[in-house]
Amino acid sequence: MTSTTATTVPAERSVQIGDHEVGTGQPVYVIGEIGINHNGDVDIAKQLIDVAVAAGCQAVKFQKRTPEISTPKDQRDKIRQTPWGEMTYLEYKYRVEFEQDQYTEIDQYAKANGIQWFASPWDAPSVAFLEEFGVPTHKIASASVTDLELLQALADTGKPMILSTGMSTLEQIDTAVEILGTDGLVMLHATSTYPLPPEEANLRTIATLRERYGVPVGYSGHETGLQISLAAVALGAVAVERHITLDRAMWGSDHAASLEPKGLTNLVRDIRILQDALGDGEKRVMPGELAPMSRLRRVDA
């Protein structure tokens, strides 16, 4: 990836992620974030892949960690109540983490169902782990924007990147972009509040990021409804990522801010309608207007 400064803004260009082109004028790239909503169960992960496929998503996303590296030291020994009993936070992180065998199943299942999968790696060994599966891209979580060692490991793969920008200042994003470069970079505007209240969405930042960096910009949402994600598309978001779950009442930290199957289906449906409705911006007489024009207009130009 080549580097650029934030003050030298190239023309926005599309980014190729596997078989999908992401950018202005392309179909909105919809990512169903499974994350850790599988609760450590491959069967649940497969059901969520089915949900994403049925809804019309282009991709699903997981999270990959090496728990002894990515878990903050002051959190490791804290006791957590879980469906599997009382355990330390570090033990819990291992309990919900997929390893080689599970990701092999996921890889085969996603490919058989015609959907891309990738993950947010939270540490350098997880980058190497994901590279073994030939994932089409890597997603950088908002929490990792300032992890320069991880960013360099990701940049070294030469893969296109998706960078979430929650909980980050423009200066922190500038530093990340210096490492990642802008060739092959897609940004996602995000606010890392779970669930997201409307007054913190700040959707006009989509334009700010696009103008500052000259890259395709999408939206990663943590709200409970559909309106804010749809507004993001209307404001030019070229990708939308939403957490998905089988049931928001399931145990786990991300389920409450996730979309259930019907909600995801409705979101993708409405995004596709919005794409058609936005048009190309050229003012002209539409085919459907010709009959009303001949019937209603008394004076021709």
Rank of each mutant, 00 (worst) to 15 (best):
V51P: 03
V51Y: 09
V51W: 07
A52F: 04
A55G: 10
A55F: 01
G56P: 09
Q58V: 11
Q58C: 13
Q63W: 04
R65Q: 06
R65G: 00
E68N: 11
E68Q: 09
E68K: 14
I69W: 02
P72K: 07
Q75M: 14
Q75H: 09
Q75G: 01
Q75V: 13
D77L: 09
K78C: 08
I79S: 08
Q81P: 03
T82E: 03
W84E: 05
T88R: 13
T88Q: 10
Y92D: 06
Y94P: 00
R95M: 06
E97F: 06
E99W: 14
E99M: 11
D101G: 07
D101H: 11
D101L: 12
Q102K: 12
Y103K: 08
Y103G: 03
T104V: 13
T104E: 15
I106C: 05
Q108N: 15
Y109A: 12
A110V: 12
A112I: 10
N113W: 11
N113R: 15
I115P: 01
Q116H: 15
Q116G: 09
S120H: 02
W122R: 07
W122P: 00
D123V: 07
S126D: 05
S126L: 12
A128W: 04
L130Y: 00
E132K: 10
E132S: 13
F133V: 10
F133H: 03
G134N: 09
G134C: 01
H138L: 15
H138C: 06
S144P: 00
S144L: 07
V145N: 05
T146C: 08
L148S: 13
E149T: 15
E149F: 14
A155T: 02
D156Q: 14
P160D: 00
M161N: 04
T165F: 12
G166P: 04
T169G: 01
T169W: 03
L170R: 14
T175H: 13
A176R: 07
E178T: 13
T182N: 08
